[in-house]
Amino acid sequence: METKIRKIGNSLGVTLPKQLIEELHLKNGDTLTIEKQEGNIKLKPIDPEFEQWAEAYRQANVDYKEVLKELAK
């Protein structure tokens, strides 16, 4: 798939092809992360529910680190 860089106000942007939008189940207002990897751009949708779950998981690992170590024995 190809798209062109376009001027949007004082910025530059790209439009996503309809096929890609449908395949990724994207909708207006969704948030994407942008990463630069080895000279390439990677766009990744953010799932707010998953982000909340992931943060709770990270926090539980910090809060209960010693308990989890004991349970793993």
Results as ranks from 00 to 15, higher is better:
Glu2Gln: 12
Glu2Val: 06
Lys4Asn: 08
Ile5Tyr: 01
Arg6Ala: 12
Lys7His: 07
Ile8Asn: 13
Gly9Phe: 06
Ser11Lys: 11
Leu12Phe: 03
Leu12Ala: 01
Gly13His: 00
Thr15Asp: 15
Leu16His: 03
Pro17Asn: 09
Gln19Tyr: 08
Glu22Arg: 13
Glu22Pro: 11
Glu23Asp: 14
Leu24Tyr: 14
His25Arg: 13
Leu26Gly: 03
Gly29Leu: 07
Asp30Arg: 03
Asp30Gly: 07
Asp30Glu: 05
Ile34Phe: 06
Ile34Asp: 02
Ile34Pro: 00
Lys36Gln: 11
Lys36Pro: 11
Gln37Met: 15
Glu38Ser: 09
Glu38Tyr: 07
Gly39Ser: 00
Gly39Cys: 02
Gly39Ala: 01
Asn40Phe: 03
Lys42His: 09
Leu43Tyr: 00
Lys44Asp: 09
Ile46Ala: 02
Ile46Leu: 05
Pro48Ser: 03
Pro48Val: 03
Phe50Gly: 09
Phe50Asp: 13
Phe50Ser: 08
Glu51Asp: 12
Glu51Met: 04
Arg58Gly: 13
Arg58Thr: 12
Arg58Met: 14
Ala60Tyr: 10
Val62Leu: 15
Asp63Ile: 07
Lys65Gly: 11
Glu66Asp: 10
Glu66Tyr: 04
Glu66Ala: 12
Val67Cys: 02
Leu68Ser: 04
Leu68Asn: 03
Glu70Lys: 07
Glu70Phe: 05
Ala72Val: 02
